[in-house]
C-alpha cells in the first residue's frame, strides 16, 4: 500500500515510522488470529455437504458487496434471488460462505412463499481480502450460485 504523504509537511522518517505502526496494527487486530483458515476447498466441501450431488448454476442470484471494504469487522452484504415466490416456485434458503475466514460458514437464511421477495441484507466479518460465495436453494431442487471478490482494508487508524 503506498503512502501518499506530502513530504513538505511530514518528514520521511515520520512517514516510515507511522507506516510501521500500521504493520503493528495489522498483527494486533486478532479478530480470528492464530487459527486454521478456510479456503476455497473448505467452502466447496461445505456446499457439497449442503446440496449433495446437485449441480449449481450461475444466474438468478445477485450478491451485493463493496469492492473494497472500509473495515473487515462490518462489511455490508445483500443477496437477492430472482423468483416468483409462489407456493409452487420459491427460494427455500440462501447460504453464505467465506473462502478466507477461519471457518467457511457465515449464515443461512430461510425463506417461504410468504416472504414475497427473496432478498436479505446483513453485515459480515472478513479477516482479509477474499471471495464470498452465496448459494440459493430453490423449491424445485435447483441450486444457483454466485461468487464475489472483496478487498479488505486493514485497521482503522488510532486505538
Amino acid at each position: 500500500m503506498s503512502v501518499q504523504f506530502n513530504t513538505q509537511n511530514i518528514r520521511r522518517r515520520d512517514v516510515l515510522a507511522l507506516a510501521g505502526t500500521g504493520v503493528v496494527a495489522v498483527s494486533s487486530i486478532g479478530l480470528f488470529a492464530g487459527d486454521a483458515m478456510a479456503d476455497p476447498a473448505a467452502v466447496a466441501k461445505a456446499i457439497k455437504d449442503r446440496i449433495g450431488g446437485k449441480k449449481s448454476m450461475a444466474g438468478n442470484i445477485t450478491l451485493e458487496l463493496p469492492q473494497i471494504a472500509e473495515n473487515g469487522n462490518t462489511v455490508p452484504i445483500a443477496v437477492e434471488v430472482e423468483s416468483p415466490m409462489s407456493s409452487s416456485d420459491y427460494v427455500k434458503a440462501v447460504h453464505i460462505y467465506a473462502e478466507g475466514n477461519p471457518a467457511p460458514d457465515v449464515a443461512t437464511f430461510r425463506f417461504t412463499p410468504d416472504s414475497g421477495r427473496a432478498r436479505v441484507s446483513t453485515r459480515m466479518r472478513m479477516i482479509k481480502s477474499q471471495n464470498i460465495v452465496a448459494v440459493a436453494e430453490m423449491s424445485n431442487g435447483k441450486v444457483h450460485m454466485v461468487k464475489n471478490a472483496v478487498k479488505v482494508t486493514i485497521g482503522g487508524c488510532g486505538g
Binding site: N73, A107, F109, S115, V120, R123
Partner: peptide
C-alpha cells in the same frame, strides 16, 4: 413468525458482525 408460522429464519456463525443487522421482506 407472522400469521402463526415462520416467515423468515436464519442460522448465524461467528462471521456475522457484532450488533447483527438483518433486513428481509414479508408479504
Amino acid at each position: 413468525t407472522y400469521g402463526g408460522k415462520e416467515v423468515f429464519g436464519s442460522d448465524w456463525h461467528p462471521a456475522v458482525s457484532a450488533n447483527p443487522y438483518v433486513s428481509f421482506f414479508v408479504k
